[in-house]
Design a protein around this nucleic acid. Structure first.
Lengths: 334, 334
DNA sequence: TTGCGCAATGGCAACGTTAACATTTGGGCG
DNA sequence: CGCCCAAATGTTAACGTTGCCATTGCGCAA
């Protein structure tokens, strides 16, 4: 019916309703100082013309976009979907939107992400760090642009939030030692992964805190295949009764590798993974693993920006612990 | 050094560089009608003040946002991450950004997604449909807002793009029949899933095209657990030599269910999945499955919007076929 | 020398919205 | 009956950018 040519502005609505533009604006914002019958007349005009407030005009006037930018160096990655769920949920709660930007192909620096964002309609930004950016130490966030980094590393000028990888390893090692294992073997991941290195460090330090010298680790590459190979290697090590794999895929692979060498899980060797990413893919067996709350990580980041509103809230660092989920791949030796 | 209070505008740069605002604007757009030395002076001023063009002012003037909105009813879902990778990649290519919006909690209608988007700074929108929206038939996209639906269903007013689920089932069934199997059993998914129902329809029709009456299907719920149960049921069916599961998790579960009843895969029964979502989680065995190119789906959607620019390009429907990846879970009976 | 054309730059207005201030109207009260 | 206050509505200006047109300055041809 009401065919729209260009775009309908407050002016058009005002003309049709026979009021001033200001009254239209007040009606849009449901101001109490407009008579109900006037409001209704204005609303009718808006409906008839199909009026939609123009975002650009509004932001220009307000100096705010009600949008949080998310910069990712690579989109695909464990937990990113859950994090996005968190971003979107928190944004929704505050009436914000999320603007997603891929910073792939550009240099792996915070500056690169920041300058990309600066041209976009965002009030604050979140950067998901998978690796160590070259300028982590020297980076300064854009003035007026609240910046949150998703990483365990603390930054002096930006708030940070992440899963507590260190605590994760601590929980796993304590758990296994508590079940009577004398030591815990470790299947690591490629060295460029920040979170992986933190898991490794947590494993090492927790063992040392118990006066146990960490055994030689087996380096994996996140794939089940590498876990399989690691399992075969560790099957020949008589001191190995408990294995902590850096992710679930390697843990599953490791189990098969152990079995291929005649070891039973958990009777002979216990295995623990991290991520709870695969669900119960092996239906009659549940992997003992650590479940992270990536959604909460995402929500925290956006809450920090959208919740701050005017007041420039200070720099905060948040670590969100995972939960060890007991399955049936660990044997109690006590 | 150059501490910025509020925000730096062309006016500030113009004053510092001793030129007009217009010349600043021309410099930003690298117009040939500005003397190189003037340009350099302006650029120096921009650097000194830390000038960033204001998005709102620019969009207001231009009437364009260079942004594509993506509406999702639920973020978590197989393939969404790859699709987002596609959105972001295509947006990057065109100099666009992606604005992500969760429409969860609101009614499952296209109208709801559309009205949510209309208040955001976007030039076009993509809606990811998992289920059937109540208003699919009656929906009209917002005037001036190019709308692309991610679904196999064709819409008269909106372009659509999706994986070709029908073709996927066709490929799988043809492949299995080609290997000498007399029929193909099917593990389905919950009825509310659009893509799942299309896979089911494709299975049924392809069998019928060969004059084979489709056997009774076993209904699953996407989980490995349900696949396990289905495998146990089908293990007792002597006519069952080939099973097509609606996703990989059920396929893996099914294999374990069959094995728990003494059937070997692929010697006794062949199993094929869909999605290629789990990687080679079982290291010494590769599931035969169908790999979809969700990234391409995402890119197509954003290309359609960002590539159109001014010209209102017509409604198009695109189906992107998956690729059957041969593993070692199918036996050739010939 | 004068006039013309081109290159470089400046002035102005408008995009749509809304805060701040101005104005009108109606009603209560001295 | 007149005054004042409050409620309701209108007017103006500004947010930052850029298209359009005007202006300036310069070299070259007449």
């Amino acid at each position: 019916m009401a065919a729209v040519k260009k775009s309908v502005s407050v002016k058009d609505v005002a003309r049709l309703a026979g009021v001033s533009e200001q009254t239209v604006s007040r009606t849009v914002h449901d101001s109490p100082s407009v008579r109900p019958e006037t409001k209704e007349r204005v609303r009718a005009a808006m409906r008839e013309l199909g009026y939609r407030p123009n975002f650009a005009g509004r932001s220009l006037r307000r100096g705010k976009f009600k949008t949080v930018g998310v910069a990712m160096f690579n989109i695909t990655g464990t937990g990113n979907l859950d994090r996005m769920e968190g971003f979107a949920a928190a944004a929704d709660k505050h009436g914000y939107a999320i603007t997603l930007t891929k910073v792939d192909g550009h240099p792996y620096t915070l500056e690169s992400a920041s300058s990309r964002m600066s041209a976009l309609p965002v009030d604050g930004m979140v950067v998901i760090m998978n690796r160590m950016p070259a300028d982590f130490g020297s980076f300064e966030p854009l003035p007026g642009m609240q910046t949150v980094l998703v990483t365990m590393l603390e930054h002096p000028l930006c708030s940070t939030v992440d899963n507590d990888q260190f605590d994760c390893s601590h929980q796993v090692v304590e758990y296994l030692l508590g079940q009577g294992h004398k030591t815990v073997h470790f299947i690591s991941c490629p060295e460029r992964s920040l979170s992986g290195m933190q898991r490794e460090e947590g494993w090492r330090e927790t063992l040392r805190a118990h006066g146990i010298e960490p055994p030689r680790l087996v380096r994996g590459d996140w794939t089940a295949q590498s876990g399989y190979a690691a399992g075969q290697v560790l099957a020949d090590d008589p001191t190995c009764t408990a294995i902590y794999a850096s992710n679930d895929a390697m843990a599953y692979g490791c189990i098969r590798g152990l079995e291929s060498r005649g070891k039973r899980v958990p009777e002979d060797v216990s295995v623990v993974g991290v991520d709870d990413s695969l669900g119960d893919i092996v239906p009659d067996r549940h992997l003992t693993t650590v479940r992270f709350d990536n959604k909460r990580v995402g929500m925290w980041a956006v809450d920090k920006i959208a919740g701050a509103e005017g007041g420039a809230s200070g720099v905060e660092h948040m670590l969100i612990p995972g939960v060890l989920v007991e399955g049936d791949t660990v044997r109690d030796l006590r």
